[in-house]
Design a binder for these strands. Sequence first.
RNA 1: GGAGGGGUAGCAAAGCCUGGUCAAAUGCGCAGGACUUAGGAUCCUGUCCCGAAGGGGUUCGUGGGUUCAAAUCCCACCCCCUCCACCA
Length: 934
Amino acid sequence: MNEFNLVQIDKKWQKRWQEAKIFEPKPEKKEKFYLTAAYPYPNSPQHIGHARTYTIADIVARFNKMIGKNVLFPMAFHVTGTPIFAMAKRIEDNDPEMIEIFEKIYGIEKSKIKQLTDPKKLVLYFSDEIEKGMKRIGYSIDWTRKFYTFDGHYTKFIEWQFIKLNKQGLLEKASHPVPWCIAENQAIGAHDTKGDVDPEIEQVILVFFYEEESGVYFPTATYRPDTLPATTNIWINPQIEYVLVEYENKKMIMAKKAAELLAEQLELKILQKVDALKYIGKKVLNPLTKEKIPIFRAKFVKEEVGSGVVMSVPAHAPYDYVALKNLKEEEFKQVKIVSALKTEEYGSCPAVDLVEKNKIEQEDDPRLEELTKEIYQKEAHQGIMLAKDFEGMKSSVAKEKIKEQLLKDKNGILIYILANGPIYSRAGNICTVKIVKDQWFINYSKKDWKEKTKLALENMKIIPQKLRPEFEYTIDWLEKKACTRSKGFGTKYPFDKSQVIEALSDSTIYMAYYTISHIVKNKDPKELDEEFFDYVFLGINSKNKKKWWDECREEFEYWYPLDSRHSAIDLVHNHLTFFIFNHVAIWPKKYWPKQIVANALVTMEGKKMSKSFGNILPLIKALDKYGADLVRLAVSSTAEIDASSDFSESIVEGAKTRLIFFYEILEKYRGQKPKDKKEDLATKLFYSKLHRKIEECYLHYQNLELKQIAQKIFYEMYNDIEKYLKTCPSPYLREFLEYWSLLICPIMPHTAEEFFEKLGEKYYIENSEFATTSTYPKADKKQINAELEKKEEYFQNLIEDIQQIKKLSKIENPKKVIVIVAGNYKYKIIKIVQENIQEQKKVFEKILKEKEFEKYKSNLFVVTNKIMKNISQYINFDLNQNKEIEYLKELKEQLKTACLAEMIEIIKEEEVGVEFAKKAINSLPAKPAIIFVG
RNA sequence: GGAGGGGUAGCAAAGCCUGGUCAAAUGCGCAGGACUUAGGAUCCUGUCCCGAAGGGGUUCGUGGGUUCAAAUCCCACCCCCUCCACCA
């Protein structure tokens, strides 16, 4: 049995399933089960991480099929948005990084890559690859319902969704800040930027310093208005170009570049170039303190950051202090460094102290950046104000107060900046923040909508359970979600055709679309108008109704509501919550979804998978190496659903050896017939355990406790078999094999089929064409024997003890082994201890009172102490002396083999002679004294 | 800043909700042995410390508390990870 064979087996069964069309369900009388997993975005081949969600969904699908339901598990492709454009462009530009990823990580041939410069081709290439992968891993997907979100039929459906939302007043138009590239005239996301930086937008205040003489303002952007009281001067950089601009009837001076960037969000008019040098040395008014402070030059000021003018707070800002020290003597003299706030750790002038301590002299010293961050963090959290009017106030409070006051007095305005800037687009253009005027939103903040959504959530099953509060929180917290973009694949926004509906908004109710996708794909999209969807999805009658509409309506009514939605855990905050919101907005309660299953990530040998680590394992590669079933097992069942599961070679290899073991068992025992089954102890015990596990696994499947299942059917059963084979001279495994082939079927369907076929006619389970289509096995409860399992446990413990004693006694082949069962009074002591477990102090009292204990007085104390000390072992103890002796007699033969002894003698402590009396005292219930006679 | 998850033996990872059967499953690693031409294959044994009779001692981030009993419950602290929206 090698890998090659596993792959062959996979393909054989996938072909047969496909030919038999067992995954293409139609509405019928049977109870249905409808589930979906997030459709993939085809901009890369799948890796094993993607496979986790789908595998779990597939296990749910297959399990439900096996418990008799009509299961629908469809799949489509999410082709919405811009990343795919950016990718195609990079390929066209021969971007070496991109080409390397395609070649090295994705394993695509160079000649093939060159053909992928068209976004559509790229989409089709990857979606084909993904589809192949999903087939190759054996998902029970109904491919007849496949669609792409950019095709005309689907976009009509999304259009309908937005018309419905709009009629309920859930859509709004407003302005909105977005990261923006002016040169390319588009919004940018992480995938559009150099180095894949995710742009973060942050609001800061622009403070206006007035220069009276020429009547102009110098605006400075700052995170820290709380340091305004300690501002000693402002900086401009004579090496950059400054311009005069007009903003709300104020004349202002700022860097030309900064003005151009800010013009995307403010109504700025750039008037003319100005000579910045002439302002150096002039005084401006600090709008908070009303002090007059000078304008000086500094090299560190950048033209693209903020306004290109900077306020100087040398006590708290390392850059400012260094720049100040670099000034001419007579300028430096004008400045008196003051402090705005203090912290315990750094005192009142941390910038001065740290710069001096580190002996920093140059304005471009990289350490300045670190120091700035360090001081900012400490002061923002722990700072206490020193400045007058704010003394004793927390700096975070003062910051807000000062901000408010500046805004009120029109001495400042709020602007957006890129907090992690500067950010450049892939083409190298600098990015800024633009206020998009005609941005459309879905307004998730409506109270009644939120309430309805919560009601839906209450009635849903969430797996894992602990995510429920997370959903509740998200429902409360969601406000407005921008739902349009200016570019990208997708559906044109019906109320502004220049806009496209973005990806998280066009994927909230598509589960409904699957129910009819296989029918509508043969129609002209034009036919899919509002009336059509109203009829199919909402049951609103129409005089234009066509016959095929009823077919659609029937499918929808049969399959809806959705029984299970599968996704990754990180989509709780957006997609999964939107999914609930939009369903409740559009449909009445009976169509609201019933369950969400969200799983954690897959890591690769303990590390997060990422392109930059280069540790992405493409699914196809893994499948070729290990076969479908081992990959399915590894990604789905090696960790609980809410914990990240690690894909490591050693785990998969380990699983492989087990799998091979089971195949060997199959070959060796499949020829057995029921008449071969013996009624010996070992066999009874083995089947008692098996049927108990069958029963337990059913519940585990219901609750998706996949790790438990894997543990039981793959590891524990393996151990059980090994033990069984050792202890039973004529083991019978035929029955096991039949049950096992179905138990593993949802997780490892190919192996299941292979077993099922090789077993031929079944004696214990239902006969059927496929394992996949047969009924999940029911445990034979008559074979579950708790007493027997208890005995087994007793025996195991005893053997362990014996082996240890034997080792210590150094008697290799004892003539005789004497087993002394504890005296009856010791069992009674246990009872008393159990009864007085809450008040152990009373135990001795009670024991001393008992008359029958008197003759054991000498060791009563020792025995009781021992029992109390090991109370944990005796808490549920229910053996009595006779029963223990009975057990021992039954096990006599086995004990002989275990001890390698010729003779076993079993006696009660009460009957023991003087010779062994001392040892006998050591005996305890379930722990007989054992004496080796050499 | 907000929200969530987590810290268990050399490593990985169960156990924690529902306290006792926990010196703590399982896998890997390591050591010794068996088989073998050989072994990276398989099997057995061991793997916190001490111990020539099944025992004793000390452990589950740190420090307290509750309890007859704490890895498990409560409180405080330290550390690590993830997510925070217009991006699929």
